[in-house]
């Protein structure tokens, strides 16, 4: 290829021309990878918009996992038994892990961990709107596991095949861990549902409150989701928001029967013509409000994250100081 260029271009190409040439070749390579449904790796050439989209999506996803620890972590001390405490701690620890896998994936695109942390704490980054709703009762631990983790799984399984290698690999690891999250939530609800009438009512109330927000986790309706098309062309997204939402409703409508509870939606039906599940209208105004920082718990969630970050500063500093001291001592010993 280089030899051909020398023949057709008489003068030495300028730096700009060389860059253009590299970009053209990069784009061709990228397009071929997309057409083959293969994977892009960190050091490959990629369009700036692809990098930007991924950075936004992966970092927002990471922030969601980190903020998502809070509604459940707040219940660890009040879990009804030692076993439930242990389970809840394991789940919250998993969510921390998910956040870390995803931050690592985002770092491969050129953002530092510090930049992302700062953006989150400064309130400049978005995360899933679902975590700005309060977890009012123990039954919410069940509803969150069953509905929220359930919706997350629906969203995340296709992301295991995302065209960006590090993102897909992080999602594979995450999906392996998620299934226990949904099952433990289902069990909490089942136990309450088979308990006293008050307990059953508590379970139903939690399902009623988390149903619509969990459906909105799939994002705005397809007509109102301008970036979805491009994400699908880039093999990041595999199914549309409405498609995934419809699938989720279909699964929940069966599972809720086993729970002996109901979904707070009288308009759920299977459309024989489209072969899709349909549901009642959702309040997209509320969704936009919560996303824009005006939900019930936005301020509280950010404040808690900030606090945790500040409270942990001395630990990070102490560990770094200890490491520096150790390495200085080692160098001295080696020199002696």
């Amino acid at each position: 290829m280089a030899a051909q260029n020398l023949q057709s271009v008489p003068a030495e190409p300028t730096a700009e021309q060389r860059q253009e040439q590299a970009d053209r070749e990069g784009q061709a390579y990228f397009d071929r990878i997309m057409a083959e449904d293969s994977r892009i790796e960190p050091k490959d050439w990629m369009p700036a918009a692809y990098r930007k989209t991924l950075l936004r999506q992966i970092s927002q996803h990471a922030h969601s996992e980190i903020i998502g620890m809070q509604p459940e972590a707040n219940w660890i001390t009040r879990a009804p038994s030692l076993k439930r405490k242990a389970i809840l701690m394991a789940k919250v620890q998993d969510e921390a892990g998910h956040g870390l896998y995803l931050y690592s994936a985002a770092e491969t695109l050129g953002h530092t961990r510090d930049e992302m942390m700062d953006a989150l704490i400064a309130g400049k980054a978005r995360y899933s709107s679902i975590f700005n709703y309060p977890a009012l009762t123990w039954a919410d631990m069940g509803a969150i596991g069953w509905l929220v983790d359930g919706a997350a799984i629906c969203n995340q399984v296709p992301l295991c095949r995302a065209s960006y290698g590090p993102y897909g690999r992080a999602m594979v690891r995450i999906c392996k861990e998620e299934s226990f999250h949904q099952r433990q939530g289902f069990e909490i609800l089942l136990e309450l549902s088979n308990g006293t009438p008050e307990q059953k009512q508590m379970a139903q109330d939690a399902v009623n409150r988390w149903y619509a927000p969990s459906l909105m986790m799939f994002g705005p309706p397809d007509d109102d989701s301008p970036n979805s098309k491009q994400s699908m062309a880039w093999n990041i997204k595999r199914f549309s928001n409405d498609e995934l939402r419809s699938r989720f409703v279909g699964m929940m409508v069966e599972q809720v029967k086993v729970l002996g509870l109901t979904l707070p939606d009288s308009q759920i039906r299977y459309n024989e013509d489209t072969k899709k599940w349909e549901h009642g209208p959702l309040d997209w105004n509320e969704f936009q409000e919560v996303l824009a920082g005006r939900g019930p718990c936005n301020a509280q969630r950010l404040e808690r994250r900030r606090e945790a970050h500040d409270d942990g500063a001395w630990v990070r500093e102490a560990a770094a100081a200890y490491a520096a001291k150790q390495s200085a001592r080692m160098q001295k010993e080696n020199a002696a």
Binding site: A119, G123, K124, L291, G293, A299
Partner: peptide
């Protein structure tokens, strides 16, 4: 409560 700008193109 507004938590400040949530401009998603910050990054």
């Amino acid at each position: 409560v507004s938590t400040g700008s949530t401009n998603d193109s910050v990054i």
